[in-house]
Design a protein around this nucleic acid. Sequence first.
DNA 1: CTGAAAGCGCTTACAG
DNA 2: CTGAAAGCGCTTACAG
Lengths: 330, 330
Amino acid sequence: MERVTIYDVAAAAGVSTATASKALNGTGRVSSETRAKIKQVAADLGFRPNALARSLTRKRSFTVGLLTDDTYGRFTLPVMAGISEGLIDQGVSVFLCAIENNPELAKTHVDAMLDKQIDGIIATGKRVDRSLPVDLTHLPVPVVYALTAGPDDAVTILPDDSQGTREAVGHLIRKGRRRIIHITGPSTFQVVEERAAAFFQTLQAAGLSSPQAAVLYGSWSERWGHEAVANLWSHDERPDGIFCGNDQIARGVVDGLRERNIDIPNDVSVVGFDNWEIVAEQTRPPLTTVDMNLKELGRQAGQALLRLVNGEAVETGMWRLPCTLVVRGS
Amino acid sequence: MERVTIYDVAAAAGVSTATASKALNGTGRVSSETRAKIKQVAADLGFRPNALARSLTRKRSFTVGLLTDDTYGRFTLPVMAGISEGLIDQGVSVFLCAIENNPELAKTHVDAMLDKQIDGIIATGKRVDRSLPVDLTHLPVPVVYALTAGPDDAVTILPDDSQGTREAVGHLIRKGRRRIIHITGPSTFQVVEERAAAFFQTLQAAGLSSPQAAVLYGSWSERWGHEAVANLWSHDERPDGIFCGNDQIARGVVDGLRERNIDIPNDVSVVGFDNWEIVAEQTRPPLTTVDMNLKELGRQAGQALLRLVNGEAVETGMWRLPCTLVVRGS
DNA sequence: CTGAAAGCGCTTACAG
DNA sequence: CTGAAAGCGCTTACAG
């Protein structure tokens, strides 16, 4: 079964390929009757234009490249899904390149994609304070960065960690919490620093004094949350509100509190970060947490790239996308 | 800066485009001098062939599609990375399609890829007992399934859960363990059933009787492992070897044991499943666990698809890829 | 409104 | 061994 081409459609409709092309693409002047007829014939024949041929003449492949250095992360996949979803509407497909922190592999991928005439590239990673192991600054196509570090003159899209923190802490304050602390990950992560700073600011803006050890740095694990609670409850000055750096820590915290028969959220309120549903929904009570809207972030990265490809003006620099507080039972 | 084409190369080398093409591709008869000269000129000019044009004539795009219904999973990303890595060597790029359990979206993606003349498709998912929400059986291109259910006459690539189980349990037996139990996930998962069956067989083959409640079904969580240990240790007949359904359960088990001052691995040995490094390496002691070699699985899926694309014979049915026991301190 | 022709950048029989 | 020509399947000025 041969593929049907525009020649077949034109022949069957009794017109030239030029007219067929215009009718099908809605370009140029074609009478509505011939247009209708051609469309009908195309549909009957099951005509699907060969995108390769179209790209060759239009010099636009409707294809973009996606570079990631993250092989295991649960953050990258939603971003990628958002990119893919946001772009498919416009008929653009995305090439996936897993480059594993390997510069040569990255180069190979970039070259292969350039050969395939991609319209642009989205670089994505797992940490906003690390950049991919490849220089993307002098490419013949535009580049957008998402969840990874990019040059200053490019557009880089990130979650608004400060705003997310304000949402979380604001929620605790509105719930009447007055002794609020922050249990978070390693201070070597930029996001940890940012959130800690926003945490202090929010307390201050509300006129709340910070407890003695208001920010506790540790690892991104359930265990660390559990341990932190054990330490806190061995002293007298105990918090009544806890904002955690991620949902795993929050879960450890909630478990630790429950073991001490502390009523959540009446005695102590807990807010997590990430809205990792598999964790947040299984926690008892289910976790109130901050969602970074990663999928939306990916979608916007795709949109931004498309605008760049079309030569439209796009504001460069860091785009901070708002986070959303998901209120559950904690 | 215009892209340099094969016309530029041919002109600069003083030959026809036909000769340039042959020299560059190593096809046809070309004297070694002219070949060398052409290659030199191409290199000097920085010539990179336009893959779109090439694909149009060769009727082979060196591009494949990757369909996944998994947006968050930590299993899919390594598989995808393996596919991408294994294929880039052959110059083939992969289109990523996140379809989210949405049949229409899936169809849109498949059509878009077909329009772009992909050579084949790899379908991948998060569960071997679920299939993607789209029918891939009557496409004009070959399809390979990885970590998702496919039709019987296709090639479907999966980890060998039974063999992985035998590795794990065999290891416990070799360590002198005699009262071995299995703490695992929900029995609604096919892998849970398979591993449980292999678990019993391995014990039996070793002449070991099964403890009373040898397989404990629960959830895929740290908490469930922790809880299971609490239950077990409230009775008299306690295991000296525990094989867990995943690393999170194993971590909960290890934590539960440590809280009871049980020496791991001297009093009780624990083996996990998944080799999720962020969990396995952080556990104290670090977890001995089964690695499913997901990346290799992806690589093989890519290879299989390529063979199909080239019209080579490929054995259909389930391919079971061996797991590897990673021995650490538990 | 419609069509003949050229062109996108490559490859591949077919002659010479 | 080398090259002229046709072709892959589309689109786009340019005439008519």
